[in-house]
Each structure stands twice: as structure tokens, then as C-alpha cells.
């Protein structure tokens, strides 16, 4: 079962987007694998105190993006191949790097300064 208990919802992004992102992160990290099941919509809505329609929206988006399947009474299950896994990883890593670069640019760092800093700090973290 995919764990949602540590989701901290922010008030800036649509909730359904945050739910999808949470699942994608777990997939990218390898803590969730194909075949794992998702909680029922109602269960997840009650746990996070969100609208059941929102959970429905998130599940539908994940189905459309092709890594979740929902069948009758068995509920929703993760289902992806290595190609989809790579797409998700790429999406998340590029997103992270984009955020990082825009932060660096905001601080007026040059490309070289940024790369130097990355090399310096890499082993500290």
C-alpha cells in the first residue's frame, strides 16, 4: 500500500497535483513499485481531510499518465514499465534542477559560480 501519511500539503498548489507528485516521488525513489495498491479514494480523503472529488481527480490523472490502473472492486494499483519509470524520473529530476537553477539565477550567480558551488558543497550534504 502506498503510504500517504507523511504528505504535508501546501496551500499553494492544487491538492490533486500534490498527490500525484507524492506518488511519482515514491516511484522515482523506488519505495513504490509496480503492483503496489493505492488506498481507496474515501479512505485517503478522510485521512488527509480533503475532498473525495480531489482524490478522484488525482487518480484519474495518474491513470491518464499511464502508471495507475483501476479495475472494478480491486481498487487502484500502480502499474508501470521501465520506460514510464524513466519518464517519471526524468520529469522529477529536471524539475528539481530547474528550480535550483532559477534560484541560483535569482541570486545573480553565473553558470561557472553555480557549478563550482555544486562541486564544493556536493560532499558536504
Amino acid at each position: 500500500m502506498i503510504d500517504f501519511s507523511n504528505v504535508a500539503l501546501n496551500i499553494r498548489e492544487p491538492v490533486y497535483i500534490q498527490l500525484v507528485l507524492h506518488v511519482k516521488k515514491q516511484i522515482a525513489k523506488g519505495t513504490a513499485s509496480s503492483g503496489d495498491s493505492l488506498p481507496s479514494r474515501r479512505e485517503l480523503a478522510a485521512m488527509l481531510e480533503i475532498n473525495p472529488n480531489t482524490v478522484q481527480k488525482a487518480y484519474r490523472l495518474m491513470e491518464q499518465e499511464g502508471f495507475v490502473v483501476t479495475e472494478g472492486n480491486t481498487g487502484s494499483v500502480l502499474n508501470f514499465d521501465s520506460h514510464t519509470l524513466n519518464l517519471i524520473r526524468e520529469e522529477l529530476t529536471k524539475g528539481m534542477v530547474r528550480d535550483f537553477i532559477s534560484n541560483a539565477k535569482e541570486l545573480n550567480l553565473s553558470f561557472k559560480q553555480t557549478i563550482d558551488l555544486v562541486s564544493d558543497v556536493w560532499d558536504e550534504v
Partner: peptide, 11 residues
């Protein structure tokens, strides 16, 4: 109350 309300909704 919120949790209860949500779990009692039929959609």
C-alpha cells in the same frame, strides 16, 4: 468532524 464528514459522503 471533517474526517467523519468526508468518510460519510457518497459522492
Amino acid at each position: 468532524f471533517l474526517k467523519l464528514m468526508i468518510s460519510s459522503l457518497r459522492g
